[in-house]
Design a protein around this nucleic acid. Structure first.
Lengths: 170, 170
DNA sequence: TATAAATAGTTAATTATATTAACCATTTCC
DNA sequence: GGAAATGGTTAATATAATTAACTATTTATA
């Protein structure tokens, strides 16, 4: 019998919630031929200050594909594919970096900006509805919690995996 | 310019954190030839009381594939495949329901139980480490927050999607 | 009580989403 | 000046899922 644990309940709920949000996102954005992943790229290119990526590090210059790969935690090759769709749809544009000719900087087109702006209110409405009834303080504490967990995962990844050393050879 | 919003930061962080946890899970459980999804099935069959599924509804009888499909929010066909691997590995067993011969009940084998029990301490250690430093009260508030969000998504899914009606025809 | 509808599980074919490996071009580091 | 690192792409592949069709069984209904 596994014992009850608030901590494990939280982790499993985060998993569950994230799953559901992704499903809903995929269904909603499918209407404009996008996936949740592609939508996240648009949010990055819109410099959405609420993205964990922008809290971890500042970015003055336009993003490039490899930075998106970092943020979304996927391969560069995958980003190439995701971006190709956005380019075809005319939501994103690419230009060479003047200093470093290996790099391609990405930005939203006028249409891309318009799409993000247009959907902003409804996204905010959904989000507000989900967490209605909690105080600002509670939300701030919750955010700190999520950020601490992420930091520990990023900085101590090896340590975390080492907790599971015992699994080898089962 | 998108404005700062605690609420959106929380949602995007949940996404990010869940992603990272899944990546780590896949890497860790790969050592025993399992994916995070298969691992979650084992947790269900171990009747882990921390799973949102068991908080939403009580289950006296052994679970069946379609209930797992509900909980993990995937198709039944997919569950069939996931379970086949667990059956091959001898971690799970299947038996027919005596009352209803359509149904197949699932349970852990001795080995399955052993595996779950063996890894329990390390899983708990990781989880505790992630949320170290927060009080019991704070954690309880997080959990209530997550549960409310999930409930609203489940009960008001149509309402949530309707927020995005405007997307059609962009 | 016969029949239609619903439920549970499986299979086969397919789609979606990602990865790895190899490669080119360019820049950075000794 | 040459080796190593970085950024992006391509092609081949892996994986994880889906849908649709089917069987078996049970439940609802007319």
């Amino acid at each position: 019998m596994i014992e009850k644990s608030i901590e494990e309940s939280i982790v499993l709920s985060i998993f569950d919630l994230s799953n559901q949000l992704k499903k809903i996102g995929d269904e909603v954005y499918q209407k404009v031929g996008l996936t949740t992943q592609q939508w996240l790229i648009l949010l990055h290119l819109a410099n959405n200050p609420n993205l964990p990526f922008f809290k971890r590090e500042e970015h003055k210059k336009a993003l490039m594909a490899s930075e998106l790969a970092d943020s979304l935690n996927v391969s560069r090759a995958n980003i190439t594919n995701l971006i190709n769709v956005l380019l075809e749809k005319g939501l994103v544009q690419q230009f060479e970096d003047s200093q470093d000719r290996r790099k391609k900087r990405l930005s939203l087109t006028k249409q891309g900006v318009a799409l993000v702006e247009k959907t902003q209110p409804s996204r905010f409405a959904v989000i507000e509805y989900l967490m209605e009834g909690f105080t600002k303080d509670e939300k701030e504490t919750f955010l700190r919690f999520l950020e601490q967990s992420m930091n520990r995962i990023i900085n101590d990844e090896e340590r975390i995996k080492s907790f599971h050393k015992m699994l080898v050879g089962v």
